[in-house]
Design a protein around this nucleic acid. Sequence first.
DNA 1: CCAATAGTTCGGAAGTATAGAACTAATGGA
DNA 2: TCCATTAGTTCTATACTTCCGAACTATTGG
Lengths: 115, 115
Amino acid sequence: MRPLYHPPLEEITIEGILYALSDPVRIRIFVQLANADCTRNCSAFLNVCDTPLPKSTLSQHFKILREAGLIRSERKGVELQNHSRCAELKDTFGPMISAIVQAYSQRMTISPPLR
Amino acid sequence: MRPLYHPPLEEITIEGILYALSDPVRIRIFVQLANADCTRNCSAFLNVCDTPLPKSTLSQHFKILREAGLIRSERKGVELQNHSRCAELKDTFGPMISAIVQAYSQRMTISPPLR
DNA sequence: CCAATAGTTCGGAAGTATAGAACTAATGGA
DNA sequence: TCCATTAGTTCTATACTTCCGAACTATTGG
């Protein structure tokens, strides 16, 4: 099993970030991580949408968030601890990411959970 | 030929916007439209990346931007006049879109044209 | 050392993107 | 009026992605 890859700042692209967040499941995961500002393991998100996700699918989603540079995942025993890289990204991308998180959080509270 | 579809505000989603802007060609087109704040026809962007795009591909890209709610295209004679819907979107999405445009514009000036 | 748990990888089916060719639609002359 | 031209769309085949079940790896606790 290859080790988890976390791109350095200079390898992170705007396109990659936007792509990662353009999926309804991934943006939900990321916004929850960013808002909570705590670490959560992957399977905590198995029920992120109303029909439970297969774990292979969830694993792919985390990989995409990770390789876009949005989250960091560290193995802790048998689980992965995931947390957002918001703070790091602020220097390079300014208010972009927090603006996305905020816009999404706001819509969430207006329109119901979805999907 | 079916008429061009422009979604009303309440049909525009964050995921759709992020997806539309996650493509290197589309984000370049959109940022240019948003920054210039003027109308440009589609073929003005044939050379938006260093190898000229086929016009069928470009047409698809414009369709995706349009149906994501990011631009408005109006037929004017034989051409389409395209302009961004930034102003309209501000009410619903706050500073999200301008933050993306700004982040991208800034990186453009740092790293060379690309792709 | 075995069983259990958490996550990854593989592979095939289903969906999406790209770009050439054929098409439509509007215009500006002869 | 009709033809040529220009701008953009649609069609279609091929190539690429995504999704998810099944099989795998890795860590831990008993």
